[in-house]
Each structure stands twice: as structure tokens, then as C-alpha cells.
Amino acid sequence: MNDRPEQEPGQRPPVVLDVAGLRMRYGTHDVLRDVTFRAHRGEVLALLGPNGAGKTTTVEILEGFRARSAGRAEVLGTDPALGGERWRARTGIVLQSWRDHGKWRVRELLAHLGSYYAPYATPAVARPWDPDDLIAAVGLTADAGRKIRTLSGGRRRRLDAAIGLVGRPEVLFLDEPTTGFDPEARAEFHTLVRRLAAEHATTVLLTTHDLDEADRLADRILVLAGGRIVADGTAAELARRYAAPDEVRWTAGGRRHTATTADSTAFARQLFHRHGDALGELEVRRASLADTYAALVRRGEREETAR
């Protein structure tokens, strides 16, 4: 079943997450001071930032589990602080970890949890997800009859993902979703998330420390530093807009040299013009997403210190 709502050609999908001037203060310290961003239906957003930047706090406010100090937040048109059961049924959460009864078997747990979502089915969205289809989607078919306490860490993490998806959410919050996954499981989970966004118009907000995951999975990347969003765009846009300098290495006059530059192509031309045939072992290392991310975090932290 394809649950993607009909949309007029050229029409922008509706805004699902709308955050403006979000602030969170603990005592005299502002963890979040001016977090502002939007997400549309079917978008996958990755929220990056160093430890302590406020990623989890931001997500918990949007989930309705933490009261903000100031600012505006809307999820599916509702203030999360006021969201009731029907609103919560439209959202899904995959936590880093959670405790449950190890005696449950995989399929019976998902069927049991799914029963809570059945009253909130709509003509547009069938709830809950069929447990066997969901088990297959997260790669646990062979484990459907096993007790949870017998699952390996990686298989247990797949079950965590299934628990977050069981209500067929319109908005899905993922907190470090592929921790403990092997490369194959990680790739399968990425495919599942992209399918949710493409076929079911699920909006996804994930926190991750894995830059490669953010690059592969997200339509947009948000970088949180110094209590605010310091960058918002695709990986390619961030690289163009906030690129860290390239590194150029070469040999001339019997010595090895290294320099950083914003335009490695022009710099290399200058080297050829200056050294001619004496130039050797020219190597250019272009800035990666990791370099750009590190530069953005440093800039955000410098601006925070300067306040």
C-alpha cells in the first residue's frame, strides 16, 4: 500500500516540522538559544553536532517529552507540549536503547504494540503496520518467533527500529538509529528509511555522529553548534558554502611542502608556473564533508565563546 498523499504537480509538500527561535535553558546556561528550521512532508533531515550541542534536547522537545524555555515548535501542526494520544499515534521514535520484557517474542511484541495504534487509523494512513511485513522490512523474519533476550545486539537494534515504525508514523525520530548495525544491516535500514520517505511520505529527523550516514541518507543536513543551527543544506551545498580549505602537497627543490587553499586548482597552476619540471609528487586533498562539518562546529563554538 502506498500511503503518499496526492499532490498537485509543482506544489511544495506541506510543512511538517516548524521550529523558530527554540530556546532551552538549564539554570543560567542556554543549551539551545535560537534553533530555527523547517521540514516538509517526506523529507529526511540529519541533525549533526558535537556531544553536548543539544541534539537530543531538540528532538525531545519535538517529541513532546521536554518543555522548552522559549520559542515556537510545531509537529504536524500541533505544539508537541500539547499533543494528545491521537497526535502521538502519528509519530514514531527509535531511541538509542530501551528496556523491555525479554520473555516477549519478536512477533508477539510488535503485534501487541501495534494494537494500540489501530483506533487511530485513517483513510489516508493504515495503522498499525502488519507485523509480518514490518518484521520482513527490518530483516528479522528468521527471528520472528525468538525471545527478545536471545537476540544479538545488532538484531536487537533492528527490533528497536521496528518498534518505532509499528504505528506507521508520519514523522519518525531516529536517535543514532544504526548503532550496533553491521554494514549489511546498516544498508538495509537506510533503504527502509528512504522507502518510508519516498513511498509513504514519512518525514524523518535523525541524529547521528556518522557523517557518511548523514551524507547517504539525508535530503538535508542541519549542523547544531553554539546553541543554534549554523548550517542547513545538502551535503553538496554545505561543501560549496562552508568548505574547509583543500590541502596541497608537493615536492620542489628537494623538499616536501604542504599548504592549504580555498582554490586548489588555481594553486596547482601557480605551482606549475613557478617550478615547471622541478615540481614533483603533487597531491591534492579536497575538503570532505567531515572537514566541512569540523570547520562549521569550530566556527559555531567560536561565536558562542565571543558572546
Score class of each variant (00 low, 15 high):
residue 245 P to D: 01
residue 252 A to V: 08
residue 220 R to C: 01
residue 10 G to E: 05
residue 226 G to F: 06
residue 305 T to W: 12
residue 7 Q to Y: 05
residue 30 D to I: 02
residue 158 R to V: 08
residue 122 T to Q: 05
residue 304 E to Q: 10
residue 251 T to L: 05
residue 213 E to S: 02
residue 264 S to T: 02
residue 187 A to V: 06
residue 204 V to F: 02
residue 33 R to G: 03
residue 241 R to G: 15
residue 120 Y to N: 06
residue 303 E to L: 15
residue 136 A to S: 01
residue 118 A to R: 15
residue 264 S to I: 03
residue 121 A to R: 15
residue 170 E to F: 01
residue 27 G to F: 06
residue 212 D to F: 07
residue 77 G to F: 05
residue 259 A to Y: 01
residue 4 R to K: 11
residue 111 A to W: 03
residue 147 K to E: 14
residue 187 A to G: 13
residue 122 T to G: 08
residue 216 R to D: 08
residue 185 A to M: 14
residue 171 V to K: 11
residue 163 I to T: 14
residue 90 R to M: 08
residue 173 F to P: 02
residue 119 P to A: 08
residue 289 L to I: 10
residue 264 S to W: 06
residue 24 M to I: 05
residue 134 L to Q: 13
residue 270 Q to F: 00
residue 293 Y to E: 01
residue 221 I to L: 09
residue 18 D to F: 11
residue 281 E to I: 02
residue 59 V to N: 10
residue 282 L to G: 01
residue 207 T to W: 00
residue 195 R to L: 11
residue 150 T to F: 03
residue 153 G to F: 05
residue 72 R to T: 14
residue 147 K to A: 04
residue 98 W to A: 15
residue 247 E to I: 04
residue 171 V to Y: 05
residue 76 L to Y: 05
residue 203 T to C: 09
residue 76 L to A: 07
residue 287 A to N: 08
residue 214 A to L: 01
residue 94 V to T: 13
residue 201 A to Q: 07
residue 307 R to V: 09
residue 255 R to D: 12
residue 291 D to A: 03
residue 147 K to C: 10
residue 279 L to V: 02
residue 47 L to T: 10
residue 49 G to F: 00
residue 135 I to A: 12
residue 134 L to G: 11
residue 180 G to L: 05
residue 116 Y to N: 01
residue 55 K to N: 12
residue 14 P to Y: 00
residue 29 H to F: 12
residue 36 T to W: 06
residue 95 L to I: 08
residue 238 L to P: 09
residue 202 T to W: 05
residue 38 R to S: 12
residue 281 E to F: 00
residue 126 A to L: 11
residue 249 R to W: 02
residue 99 R to E: 15
residue 152 S to T: 08
residue 199 E to V: 00
